[in-house]
């Protein structure tokens, strides 16, 4: 079964949710014209990335009553959407979040579980840490959502895979860094490398939507990708330019790849659990 996936490799306005919503709806129209079943927006696509003290002023709840989510939920009756936003829970903790919207409903909300707070990053200062990694069913099959630093760690994609995800959906607002004599930035090279590795190791579709544009001196490099379960690159968006990136995926590829390479079948989860328990006990428990 073939499906068209679209990645909205957009620039955003920092802290202007209304303006960003309008751009989302514009890309929905374009993705519908392209025949897409799913349109993935980058991390914090409704707010911009380096929010700092703006974070607490731009949160929204993914409900039909919310003025920003109402039109997005309406649009999700025509195609599935993944959007990035700041979620404020009942107890007023703020999360970097991604929501999967389909058929007018919220199928899943993921709170970023790894907040980079080092180097140029300061997310842990402004946001609460998410506490779960769960796959969820969609009209395209079982999927999993991870946000940027979440997939710089191997465990969230691994857990999503074990939980049933055949489509790993990654979103980023990845600041470009590491200019060398190579034609792409080190950050771009690294992210593409691991996306290809996840597709290969987990024999799964790996979809990555990264934003473009600038926030003060930070540049965001785009280069959104889709890899198939063989680890082959299906599409890569341009670097540093806004684009609607389209890929056709053949869900039957999962069948063919896993018939050849039954890594999932043979994965020894009991062994992992036993060894993990042993390691954690030895180290006095984990985080």
């Amino acid at each position: 079964m073939k499906k068209t996936i679209a990645l909205a490799q957009i620039n955003t306005r920092l802290g202007d949710v209304q303006a960003n919503l309008e751009k989302h709806l514009m890309y929905v129209e374009r993705a519908l014209v392209a025949g897409a079943s799913l349109l993935v927006f980058p991390e914090l696509s409704l707010t911009g990335y380096a929010l700092q003290d703006i974070a607490h002023a731009v949160s929204h709840r993914p409900t039909p009553e919310d003025e920003i989510f109402a039109p997005l939920l309406a649009a999700s009756r025509e195609l599935d959407l993944v959007v990035g936003f700041v979620d404020e829970d009942q107890r007023h903790r703020f999360y970097i979040a991604g929501a999967y919207l389909s058929g007018g409903k919220v199928l899943h909300v993921h709170h970023k579980v790894y907040l980079p707070t080092y180097g140029l990053f300061d997310e842990g200062r402004f946001f609460a840490w998410g506490d779960s990694i769960e796959a969820f069913d969609t009209p395209l099959g079982c999927a999993g959502l991870a946000i940027c630093e979440d997939f710089w760690h191997a465990s969230p994609p691994y857990l999503l895979w074990l939980d049933g995800a055949d489509i790993l959906i990654f979103t980023s607002a990845s600041p470009g860094r590491g200019l060398t004599d190579e034609p792409k930035l080190e950050s771009a090279r690294w992210v593409e490398h691991i996306n290809q590795a996840y597709a290969s190791l987990f024999t799964s579709f790996t979809v990555h939507a990264n934003r473009v544009g600038y926030e003060d001196g930070l540049n965001f490099w785009g280069g959104s990708t889709v890899f198939d379960p063989n680890g082959n690159l299906l599409v890569r968006g341009p670097y540093h330019e806004e684009a609607l990136v389209i890929a056709e995926i053949d869900l039957n590829q999962l069948h063919r790849t896993r018939a050849r390479l039954p890594i999932l079948r043979d994965e020894r989860t009991g062994l992992v659990q036993r060894e993990l328990e042993r390691i954690l006990n030895k180290n006095g428990g984990g985080r």
């Binding site: 470009g176 200019l179 060398t180 004599d181 190579e182 034609p183 792409k184 930035l185 544009g213 600038y214 003060d216 001196g217 540049n219 670097y239 540093h240």
Partner: peptide
């Protein structure tokens, strides 16, 4: 030094984009 060598096309893309965006 080899490590200081930069890809000038990429540098130009990022820096002209930066100037345009920030101004």
């Amino acid at each position: 030094s080899a490590k200081l060598k930069i890809n000038t096309d990429l540098a130009k893309t990022i820096l002209t984009g930066f100037i345009h965006s920030e101004i």
